Computed example of a mutant assay.
Amino acid sequence: MEKSILHAVEVPWQISPSHDFIEFIGEESEVKTKFLINYNAKIREREIKHLCRQYGNEEKIPDEIWNRVGNAIIEINFAQVHFFSKTVSQQEYGLLDSEKFDLSQIAYLDDDLWNETNICPDPSFYEVINSNLKSRLGIDSLSVRHWLILGHDVFFDILAPSFNWEVV
């Protein structure tokens, strides 16, 4: 069996590896998921500078605000969903089965590259290029794409043409 190839989605954030998804809503052919995400050091520093101007210095920034620096909650929306599944990982280490997925295309998290490009090298959000799931379900439309989102100990498979995301 050919392994599925993962391609990192180009976004400026990484789904927090230490938190699970916050919420998921599935209605008809629409799916919405919420995750805690982390931004790169460059964005965190910009947030700290902004807060220092607002509060005077770092020591005066309230703890409840300081604890959210560099983080946000995002909602990822998929419309025209053909398939959705949430799976709890059966792997002892890591979420993805290396027998099913070719993990060689996933870049290591390189903070310098992330800061330079503002694109996270490993956001825990991927497009599955040669989807075995699509073929198993008999979906051969080129407009339907296979998306994979990794949470802390669950992953989501979504077959849909596209997605959008926003900070909530």
Rank of each mutant, 00 (worst) to 15 (best):
Met1Pro: 02
Glu2Cys: 10
Lys3Met: 08
Lys3Ala: 11
Ile5Lys: 13
Ile5Met: 11
Leu6Trp: 00
Leu6His: 02
Val9Gly: 00
Pro12Lys: 03
Pro12Asn: 10
Pro12Glu: 04
Trp13His: 09
Ser16Glu: 08
Pro17His: 04
Ser18Leu: 12
Asp20Leu: 07
Glu23Asn: 15
Gly26Phe: 12
Glu27Arg: 15
Glu27Ser: 11
Ser29Asn: 15
Glu30Ile: 11
Val31Cys: 08
Lys34Gly: 03
Leu36Met: 12
Ile37Pro: 13
Tyr39Gly: 10
Asn40Lys: 05
Ala41Thr: 15
Ala41Gln: 15
Ala41Tyr: 15
Lys42Phe: 10
Lys42Gly: 07
Arg44Cys: 14
Ile48Phe: 07
Ile48Leu: 13
Lys49Tyr: 13
Lys49Glu: 15
His50Cys: 09
Leu51Arg: 05
Gln54Leu: 10
Tyr55Val: 03
Gly56Tyr: 14
Asn57Asp: 14
Asn57Arg: 13
Glu59Ser: 07
Lys60Leu: 10
Ile61Glu: 08
Trp66Asn: 13
Arg68Asn: 11
Arg68Tyr: 05
Arg68Ile: 02
Asn71Arg: 15
Ala72Gln: 09
Ile73Cys: 09
Ile74Thr: 05
Ile76Ser: 07
Asn77Arg: 14
Phe78Trp: 12
Ala79Cys: 05
Val81Ile: 05
Phe83His: 14
Phe83Lys: 01
Phe83Trp: 03
Lys86Ala: 06
Thr87Arg: 12
Thr87Met: 11
Ser89Gln: 04
Glu92Trp: 01
Gly94Phe: 00
Gly94Lys: 05
Ser98His: 04
Ser98Trp: 03
Glu99Gln: 15
Leu103Gln: 10
Gln105Gly: 05
Ile106Lys: 07
Ile106Gly: 09
Tyr108Pro: 03
Leu109Tyr: 07
Asp111Gly: 03
Trp114Cys: 05
Trp114Leu: 11
Glu116Trp: 08
Pro121Gly: 11
Pro123Cys: 03
Tyr126Pro: 00
Val128Leu: 00
Ile129Trp: 06
Ser131Cys: 03
Asn132Val: 01
Arg136Asn: 10
Gly138Thr: 07
Asp140His: 10
Asp140Val: 07
Leu142Val: 13
Leu142Ile: 04
Ser143Lys: 03
Ser143Leu: 03
Val144Lys: 07
Val144His: 09
Val144Arg: 04
Val144Ile: 13
Arg145Ala: 01
Arg145Val: 00
His146Cys: 05
His146Met: 02
His146Lys: 09
His146Thr: 04
His146Leu: 03
Trp147Cys: 08
Leu148Pro: 01
Leu148Ala: 05
Ile149Asp: 06
Leu150Met: 07
His152Gly: 04
His152Met: 15
Asp157Trp: 01
Asp157Ile: 00
Ile158Asn: 01
Ile158Gln: 01
Leu159Tyr: 00
Pro161Ser: 02
Pro161Leu: 02
Trp165Arg: 02
Trp165Met: 02
Val167Asn: 05
Val168Trp: 03
